[in-house]
Amino acid sequence: MVKAVLTVVGKDRVGIIAAVSSYLAGVNVNILDISQTIMSEIFSMVMLVDVSESYEPFVDISDGIKKLGSDMGLRMQLQHVDIFNSMHKI
């Protein structure tokens, strides 16, 4: 299993989760966990996904997510889980 963290931050609007999850489904990326909050109209979501069965290489999905974010006026980023593990765990 190759895990990655998808972060989404920006102004709340209709269809953010729908857009993200349909994009992920399209490239066969499985969603493992979601944590989402809205504070004073700022939408913040962290998703844990498994990219091991995806149809496309990691870097292409990462580019795709970034583009989806800029199309929707949100900051979206997909990062390999190791960056968080290595920074915060010994």
């Binding site: 931050v9 966990d33 844990l48 968080f84 593990n85 915060h88």
Partner: peptide, 13 residues
């Protein structure tokens, strides 16, 4: 989620 949200937020920031 096995990585605390605040750690993710800190790294991203």
């Amino acid at each position: 989620m096995f990585i605390p949200a605040d750690e993710i937020e800190q790294t991203v920031r």
